[in-house]
Amino acid sequence: MNDQIFLQLSGFIYLLAMVFYMSSAIFKSTKIGYFATTLSVIGVVLGLCAFVIRIVLLYKVSGSMLDSIPIANLYESLQFFALLLMVIYLVFEFATKIKVLGIFSTCVAGILIILISSINAPADVKPLIPVLQSNWLIAHVLLSFIAYVFFTLSAIAAIFYFILVSKGRQDPKYSLWVTTVSILVTLLLSLIIHLLFKQMIFISICIVLFIVIFTSLFYYGNNIPFYFSAFSKDINKLDRYIYNFTVLGFIIFTIGGLIFGAIWAENSWGRYWSWDPKETWAFITWLVYAFYLHARLYKRFDRSAVNAIAILGFIVTIFTFLGVNLLLSGLHSYGSN
């Protein structure tokens, strides 16, 4: 059995769900919305299948259940992140009946899965190297990822916040959301092009793509808030979601990412903190979100400024999660292959 087929299928279905989430917003149709949700659930089930198959494959080589949770290398962590994002998003959707966040949740999950094949993350089933053979692995990695997911959802909610509060093209908030959405769409399209034509995407093409998307969004984006008007009556509620996601992420990240990570590092390297690039960037992420939480208390920052930090925090989070492993080397380097 091969877990990759299930994974790729789930990625495809997430992107399909994204189209339907979008249509449901545009046509204000609950039926299409239900269909989008159903697709997401199917995607999650397929993702779960891939996850379980991988556990079985790992168990065959390692012989230990605790050492068989597939979260130890880049392929596995991208797969796990996409799955976790969709699971937590769906829990949110079922609890609140709010579907608009689905557009970007499925988009990010899809990007993550396509990314696996674009960067050729090796999918070989490999048992754990000695330093990772610890019960802290599950506690530390699982909680860090849950925190990353909450940070992602808070940024997604923040994008909608800016879509709704921005007033016209002169408003910097307008440029902010148009830029963020353009980056996401450019990333998705470049990855799809790369996947279809198996060719390196040149930076120049990406830039052209970005400019095209940015310009068209900038000129026609004025109508977009209209599609999400369900929210606009209660912008405070949306703001509250951003806050709740961030707070949940912050608590879990502090405890699971930083504190559990430090205890594990003390146990295996003999240092609870050694300014390894991953640690440094985790610290930076933590500082940015700590800043968000404090900035909310000060009157000199208005809500938009504070929520812009949530988007900034997401960029830093992604760098901590992926950038460090792909670009910098250090003690956490096992995540890069």
Binding site: T280, W281, F283, L287
Partner: peptide, 21 residues
């Protein structure tokens, strides 16, 4: 002051980023 906290955190942040890169 919180202003000083922000300045200090920002400088620490910049140095930490530099150190990792």
């Amino acid at each position: 002051s919180s202003k000083f906290a922000m300045i200090i955190s920002a400088v620490i942040l910049i140095l930490a980023v530099a150190g990792s890169l």
